[in-house]
């Protein structure tokens, strides 16, 4: 898929996320918008979808730590035929497994989410299973930068390099915001890239909204585990949401919705030109 189409897919996805959040009155716009291009490139360009659809043991695995970005994923799943419209419409209603966190009972979803700091350790286990089962699949993890405060992450990061796990690729959606605070960009003691590097990982820093850079990074080959630090903007795409703490889980008012909608529609038009 060409870069222009990927960009269009991403902007259309943002609009659908906004519509759904406004419709059901819950969701996480900020952290979903920050990782839309990452998810788009991963699913449209990198993964073998046929194997995912077949739930084949050979499929590449995607483990998501920040499961609250699920709506971005569901829209991609719908677009790619992994999820029916009927199922997508169940989101936010009682008694369905497609909810505001990921549930492994749905095709394409590997693990339950809701608690942070689990994805990289699970990925290590799956990556080891590939080695033991003589499979060639790769394991991708998407985690947030604030999520990397969790100690469990670093237990797993250390294990991966000590055990020479080289079929794992972690993407950190570095949007510089947690739920309650801005993450200090001038923190020279522990920038994420230094931490991963010092633990023996191949570390790449990219613009997490630039599809060319994302795809190139996702295709990196290394004998080491790979960490892609993707610099992003929380709330990307809606000017008044960008880098705003409030938009971790705020729901837009009617006016905010209309303004956000108009901005996202303009981006879709621009990407169609």
């Amino acid at each position: 898929m060409d870069i222009k189409t990927l960009k269009l897919k991403a902007s259309e996805n943002r609009l659908k996320v906004l519509e759904k959040v406004a419709e059901v009155g819950r969701g996480h716009l900020g952290g979903t918008f920050s990782c839309i291009e990452i998810l788009t490139c991963l699913y449209y360009e990198i993964l073998n979808l046929d194997l995912i659809k077949l739930n084949s043991n050979d499929r590449d695995r995607v483990l998501i730590g920040k499961g609250h970005a699920c709506l971005g994923l569901y829209n991609i799943f719908f677009d790619l035929g992994l999820l029916s419209l009927e199922k997508l419409d169940e989101f936010g209603t009682n008694s369905h497994s497609l909810g505001p966190q990921l549930n492994y009972k749905n095709l394409g979803i590997e693990t339950n989410t809701g608690s942070l700091g689990h994805a990289i350790g699970l990925s290590c286990g799956l990556a080891l299973a590939a080695r033991l089962n003589k499979k060639n699949y790769k394991v991708f993890s998407l985690v947030g930068d604030a999520e990397c405060d969790e100690g469990s992450i670093w237990e797993s990061v250390l294990f991966a390099s000590q055990n020479k796990i080289n079929n794992i690729c972690v993407i950190v959606d570095r949007n510089w915001l947690s739920v309650t605070k801005k993450i200090d960009r001038l923190d020279e003691v522990s920038p994420l890239e230094n931490r991963f590097k010092s633990y023996g990982w191949e570390t790449i820093i990219i613009d997490g909204h630039n599809c060319e850079e994302i795809i190139k990074a996702l295709k990196t080959k290394s004998t080491k585990p790979i960490a892609i630090i993707a610099d992003t903007i929380k709330g990307k795409g809606v000017s008044f949401m960008e880098s705003g703490i409030k938009w971790h889980h705020s729901i837009p008012t009617k006016n905010e919705y209309l303004n956000a909608r108009s901005e996202l529609e303009n981006q879709i038009l621009k990407n169609k030109l």
Partner: peptide
């Protein structure tokens, strides 16, 4: 914590 996570990952991989 990592031991439990890895165990889960390995079990997801059929172990």
């Amino acid at each position: 914590q990592n031991v439990v996570l890895m165990a889960a990952g390995l079990a997801m991989g059929g172990k």
